[in-house]
Amino acid sequence: MNAAQSAPGALPALAVEGLTASLRLGGTWYDAVRDVSFQIAEGETLALVGESGCGKSLTAMAIMGLLPDKIGRMSAGTVTAGERRISGLTEKQMEKIRGDAVGMIFQEPMSSLNPVLRVGFQIAESLIYHRDMSRRAASKRALELMELVRIPAAAQRFRAYPHEFSGGMRQRVMIALALACSPRVLIADEPTTALDVTVQAQVLDLLRGLQDEHGLGILLITHNLGVVASNAQRVMVMYGGDVVESAPVGAFFANPQHPYSAALMSAMPRVDRATEDLNPIPGQVPSLQEMPAGCRYQGRCPLRVAKCAERPPLVAVSEGPHHLARCWVKAPPPGEGA
């Protein structure tokens, strides 16, 4: 449905179809992510936004096959990286995929590196493990990677420990680690949230540069709309496990359709608008057990109508073919009025 950006015929770097992830709470399975579908073309960045607990990270975990054992499972859907289907694999097969075909970086660069192993070795380890490289060749490549992510004086820092690196430098190391085996897709889960604003800009800058050079598809998970605006080509908004809006970045910021997206946008502080107060969204995300049937945003929505008790489909809005929303009022399916 979102095949817009990819050149005709080219396989998307990552294709997710109907992904549903469930969590077990008190013996019952609840769908925490419902029917998420998207494609990321090579060289494209898709931003996944939403507030805490909306299912962004869970989506990433499901793609990586890293849902917590026993209390989490991917109950439906397929994930395809390039031509390889990577959902429904055994754990052993999945280990070969992770860090090789799909890379991932995390929110916390401060704690995501092993504190007692040398940085250079940690980068080399992935190459030794996935690519059967010799220690010497892997170390050489690791040093190149450290230079690639623009770590100054990489040769001196090769044998340093993580505590000798600042947050931004550690995130660069994490990027080098994730890219060691040249994956086609990188899942970046809040990659800059823990960093200072200036360092944030540098890290995002680096990611963009690497993306241009290597044609990397990036799934950028964030709750920072500013990061979305300057880094992504397309954006997907999640609420309560549902994708509520999916649009090209320009169209999204010019004209957000779903009431939740609109509320998110007006809750954002702006320097160019003289408002005295922020407009927070009233209420909070209901817990999984208390999710209403139908539209999950209905409890907080100012546009609520009777129809919202049924789950709206994700359909194109009048603004354009690639702009989709899940709302009876703003995006009525063809043939149905609100």
């Binding site: 992770r98 995390f106 995501s112 680690l177």
Partner: peptide, 11 residues
Amino acid sequence: DFVDACRALGF
């Protein structure tokens, strides 16, 4: 977190 990171690297 580094254990999660290891798993994400497929170890």
